[in-house]
Design a protein around this nucleic acid. Structure first.
Lengths: 347, 347
DNA sequence: TTGAAAGCGCTAACAG
DNA sequence: CTGTTAGCGCTTTCAA
């Protein structure tokens, strides 16, 4: 192995020029040799390839990106990878992206609009060929995304989507999932079912609220606005969850069942109930959207709506790469809805 | 807002040249105006800034990287973000990196050596300015890293470190943490304490094994090789954990206590005990390294050694950025050891 | 078959 | 104060 010591301190990978100089060739010849064109003599080619191998030459992808005006990488914006659901989505994304020669850059919003905007602007400013986006809980203004989209940056929304931008969307069947979870609570005998959910302007929130309402309606239970608690940052701050749950439990007509809209909120709510010494599920039956494996092991076990997170990541990525690699402008967009499954783990 | 329609399909951000042409200036003037040098007239500057603002101009970071031969981004290699410990580390990393103007690219090894190598090679050639590495469970050969290091790529190891590369390291006090967890089990009355751990060649594994042995020694308990179970992929595949736990429970002298070396293994082991209908903690007391918030809510609660994950990420990043930005070669490296805390949550 | 030269977007040295 | 030019690493005409 030969080391590049042009500069003692900085990390300086080998370049075409290094090879050319060492071999007394021109850079274009070296480039051709490495890229397997026909217009090159077998000897030169072998010479170059051997030497490149020896010094472990790697083409500089930055230079390539600049030249080809694409980076073979995609950007992802999501709330946080500590959330099991999103971690699974990421695995799905990577599984497809790597197969197709793309790299993945993940950014976290932690549910803040400003962070999301900064992250996405940076991703877009050239380093990525496309975007996979799940909106933050705070986001209401998507104009910066509309901008990028109008200017031709391919993007696909997953999970938390917006109709303000005409492109592919992939979501779970939130309405049905919420319906089933609520129905489960009703069948457990709950009469006063509360709903703890994320920010009101998220697509998932309204979809899940709908499913919840439909279930109540089907079983002739009244809808009570006081039973709906929104957490503006999706329970990012435990305080949000804490206040919401306590308010619910301070109502004159205390709820006896709770439908929770997410992973994080479920965990947060359980913590509060534990503090309040309210027994789950004896005093409070809980069901909700949750993809955490750990919760499988929980006692009090809680029934959960599972989303096909890995698959969602895969499909979203496939859609995005197809957009990116499409030769022609795409105008036909799809809204894909994947089935959820109710995993009953009651006490 | 003005749209760039040089090309109807592709996403073509504005360039300096676009601005220059529109304003009848040269690209260098525009560049200067945007970068706030003194050698520019206020009028020209205002003209350019206003126009740039109007079209929402962003400099192309790829071109910048190519020019400056650094990307203002750092690469991270870790096993998987679905692991709460690593998710917390990532948050720590990002908190520092963003403050100092760096972007973070996360790659997951899923405990595979090959994946790690490919990821890191790509990060390096893609001109990340430095690397934060926590080795995969499979990794024994670090020569490709030594290579990059010798050629001047700054790197800092965290959590799963190697002494084969002379650079900063940051780890938790694994010996002490393991000692305390084991001691806790002993004080609970356990006589036959098993140890479920990750791959044998990980630094964390040997450190934690040491602490475990020291505790046994202090309390005059015999060390029994049969009680040590390694999972080559850190429990990445539940089968590994499953087999290990079953083997332990098939021993003639069944263990009555278990010290588990990680998050994932704890969760996996609990699942097996549940399947085997072995009551925790009545029949099996468990303590182990774990940073999962969710486990706080678990019943059977298990006692855990907590690592200051967020802080580790912060410190590692600070160290790395100092290396990157250092004007002179650094030869003094530090091995930082952070304290763990035992969080007793017994039945 | 090979080399010279231009250009991707940007900055910086050098002229004017 | 502003424009021209060269160069970061690479590919791709165009000439030879």
């Amino acid at each position: 192995m030969i080391y590049n010591i042009r500069n003692g301190i900085m990390f300086e990978p080998f370049t075409l020029k290094d090879i050319a100089k060492a071999l007394g060739l021109s850079t274009s010849t070296v480039s051709r040799a490495l890229r397997d064109t026909h217009e090159i003599s077998p000897e030169t080619k072998k010479l170059v390839l051997d030497y490149a191998q020896q010094i472990n030459y790697r083409p500089n992808p930055i230079a390539l990106s600049l030249k080809e005006r694409r980076s073979k990488s995609i950007g992802v914006s999501l709330s946080e990878v500590a959330n099991q659901y999103f971690a699974q989505v990421v695995n799905g994304i990577e599984s497809i992206a790597y197969d197709r020669g793309y790299h993945v850059i993940i950014t976290q919003t932690h549910e803040f609009y400003e962070r999301e905007k900064v992250n996405i602007q940076h991703l877009a400013s050239r380093s990525v060929d496309g975007l996979l986006v799940s909106l933050s809980a705070e986001t209401t203004d998507t104009s910066y995304l509309q901008n990028l989209h109008q200017r031709g940056l391919p993007m696909v929304f997953f999970d938390r989507v917006t109709d303000q931008i005409n492109t592919h969307q992939i979501i779970a069947n939130n309405v049905k999932g919420a319906f089933e979870a609520t129905e489960y609570l009703i069948k457990q005998g709950c009469k006063r079912i509360a709903h703890l959910t994320s920010s009101a302007h998220l697509s998932i929130s309204s979809e899940r609220l709908n499913g919840y309402k439909q279930a109540l309606a089907k079983y002739n239970l009244p809808f009570n606005e006081a039973y709906i608690k929104y957490c503006a940052h999706g329970g990012m701050f435990q305080e949000e969850t804490d206040i919401s749950v306590r308010e619910l439990m301070n109502l004159k007509e205390k709820p006896d069942g709770l439908f929770v809209a997410s992973d994080r909120l479920s965990i947060g709510a359980l913590a509060v109930f534990k503090e309040l010494k309210i027994k789950v599920p004896q005093k409070m039956v809980i069901a909700g959207f949750c993809n955490s494996d750990v919760l499988d092991l929980m006692c009090p076990t809680l029934t959960s709506v599972r989303q096909p997170a890995f698959e969602m990541g895969q499909i979203a990525t496939d859609m995005l790469l197809n957009l990116i690699e499409s030769k022609y402008p795409v105008h036909d967009f799809e809204k894909k809805i994947l089935d959820t499954s109710l995993s009953v783990r009651n006490s």
